[in-house]
Design a protein around this nucleic acid. Structure first.
Lengths: 378, 378
DNA sequence: ATGAAAGCGCTAACAC
DNA sequence: GTGTTAGCGCTTTCAT
């Protein structure tokens, strides 16, 4: 059903369709090209014509069509931000900060979500959104959080500058990776706990992603560094891959477990997995003095399972999270957590991308120093 | 000029640029149009050619360029979902469900975020994203949650079918609005509270948006209906606008307040505002037996302020939320809340849009019946 | 300084 | 059935 088609003839202020460059040209009595020049900071355009064009555009309410611009010899001022996940407040902060920095530099940004909850459990890459992103031919790309099927972006990352924020780049061919210094963050937590005389510490996490694994590895070195590593810990020390947690459990027999003072209890980044891990600890009578987790959500799961068994937090067992999301600040939760400096991560990611676009700078991995926010849970 | 450019003779599998329809045509030894036909479910294409084209496309890794498609006489299978806010898990559920339904109908969807956190406090409309959305010329639009400056979408809503999910359309010119039946939801809460013998009930909210106002109004009628409305309530009964809460407080003098059994305590949809409202209640010694809120976040703010003053929840004061977000299920919070049926809202929104696209059906306002999830807080 | 003309990748009449 | 011819809205040589 056609809109107001034949609207030809006069067509002054508000036709059916948004005004095109052609309308503006006609209105101003100049050529298309001239209008284009004016809108692209054209140097040598007479002041008189420029004003004529600007006024005409204004009168018509003209705004250049991004899609057409993108098609016609790919625009160079559009940056796409591909966000893994709409749930996590963490990412919203990063995106906001990145976008602000990009805007300062005159880049337009489009934020596209990467994941879709296809109903069937685990979230999956949103290929439609990815297709649009790709076809828009942005001049740069920032991914925020772990993107499902990141490998499918390979053709993009090969061609346009890409910076990964708050995730660990597995492929290795991106321009830069900006993320929290997990090593330092976890060390902050372990130090805090150690200072309180805690002896037996477990890390719940390590599975379900590279970030999770990185934090588990950080935990291993932190406890080793402080000499609070037990038998189990040393057994797995040389191994820092994803499945070392499993090995740890496989290797350690019951006696060793009792003697161990620090270990990794396998769980992915979900609340449920964390609860399950803790119930396992409880069932096997291995509840430690403190539990360090890979993120805040996991910490919630830990607290839930603990309290459900009558184990008080922090009195009987301390708990710490990571990310310092809005959750942790809720008084009823009051979770001690590591603040990764999200806004800073966002700004640095934007800056890194800007540099890459400008002169091809490749920053590699940038670790942002985190800080510890101490609350009631530890 | 030009169909088969002499561009580089061979050029088989992976040139620099993504393959275009032209490449496929050459590879298959047919014309561009034929390729286009094949990719658009062309009826009358000989099986032989169709296969040739498909194989060629496959060999080259060809995928039609959305942007070009959109430009060339606006595609009719792209629906845009414009989400107000990346923070709220509520919206993620709605988006996921809507997208799934749309996919079933063969529509591609692009999810675009509507708000940016411009650093300076309150979130603002993301005009860049809106521009992209607009220029993509989607065949339909679903907005999720309250969009900042919704009026700026007027040119879009005038031309393409638009359905508003989980928000209240102020402009009135959208195809359909799908949202929770606030009247029923709040009534569920009030009934539950009344059944427990609660006499003095306050609603914290009413400001900061149409949804907030709608729920406050629902509260007023629910208490009136159950005859638990006090002097203040009847004083404001005829008035159901945003500022009636203010009037209530202005009208009621101290004596009346003491006698009142139900009233609205003004606050917007934020945690802080809710806390402030409760502190006001405490300071003026007007703490009720139960507090109903406009959403879960507000409820958290209420609980925080209450407990900070030593008032126990639910023993001294019951609290109920709205939206049944993941927050409320956290055991430490355990918030009684109204489940608006988010997935259902998403699906119905998608269905309404599909119908509108197909035959112009305009559903108007659709209210989804909510249910009450009783937890510890009430 | 300004306009004409040739595309970007694709679709859509309209011929053959 | 299949190819030709025009565009969609814009940018960009290349003349003038």
């Amino acid at each position: 059903m056609a809109e107001y088609d034949e609207s030809g003839a006069a067509a002054p202020v508000a036709p059916g369709r948004p005004p095109t460059i052609r309308d503006v040209a006609r209105e101003a009595g100049v050529s298309k090209s001239l209008v284009s020049l004016v809108f692209n900071g054209g140097e040598n355009v007479s002041e008189e014509r420029r004003l004529r064009v600007l006024h005409a555009a204004d009168r018509l309410g003209y705004r250049p069509n991004l899609v057409a611009q993108s098609l016609s010899s790919g625009r160079r001022d559009l940056v796409a931000i591909f966000v893994s996940n709409l749930h996590n407040p963490l990412f919203a902060e990063i995106v906001g900060a990145a976008k602000a920095r990009l805007a300062e530099a005159g880049q337009r940004t489009i934020i596209v979500s990467a994941q879709v909850d296809d109903g069937s459990g685990s979230p999956v890459l949103d290929r439609d959104n990815l297709a649009v992103l790709r076809d828009l031919r942005p001049s740069g790309l920032i991914t925020v959080g772990t993107i499902p099927e990141f490998a499918e972006l390979a053709d993009l990352t090969a061609v346009i500058p890409t910076v990964v924020a708050s995730a660990i780049d597995a492929t290795g061919d991106v321009t830069a990776t900006i993320r929290s210094d997990d090593e330092a963050g976890i060390d902050l937590v372990v130090a805090h706990l150690a200072a309180q005389g805690v002896r037996r510490i477990a890390f719940v996490g390590g599975e379900g992603g590279t970030v999770s694994a990185s934090r588990a590895a950080a935990f291993r070195s932190a406890v080793a560094r402080r000499g609070i590593a037990g038998a189990v810990q040393s057994a797995v020390a040389p191994c820092s891959t994803d499945d070392s947690a499993e090995s740890a459990m496989a290797i350690a027999d019951a006696d060793e477990r009792a003697a161990a003072r620090a270990w990794v209890e396998a769980a992915d980044f979900t609340e449920e997995a964390a609860s399950r891990a803790v119930r396992r600890l409880i069932a096997e009578d291995r509840v430690p003095d403190a539990i360090v987790t890979g993120n805040d959500l996991t910490a919630i799961g830990v607290i839930t399972a603990l309290e459900e068994a009558g184990i008080r937090v922090p009195e009987d067992c301390r708990v710490a999270g990571y990310d310092d999301t809005s959750l942790s600040a809720i008084p009823r939760i009051s979770l001690t957590s590591v603040d990764p400096g999200n806004r800073r991560i966002g700004r640095e990611a934007a800056a890194a991308l800007l540099a890459a676009i400008a002169d091809g700078t490749r920053l590699g991995e940038v670790l942002i120093p985190p800080s510890l926010v101490v609350r009631d849970s530890a």
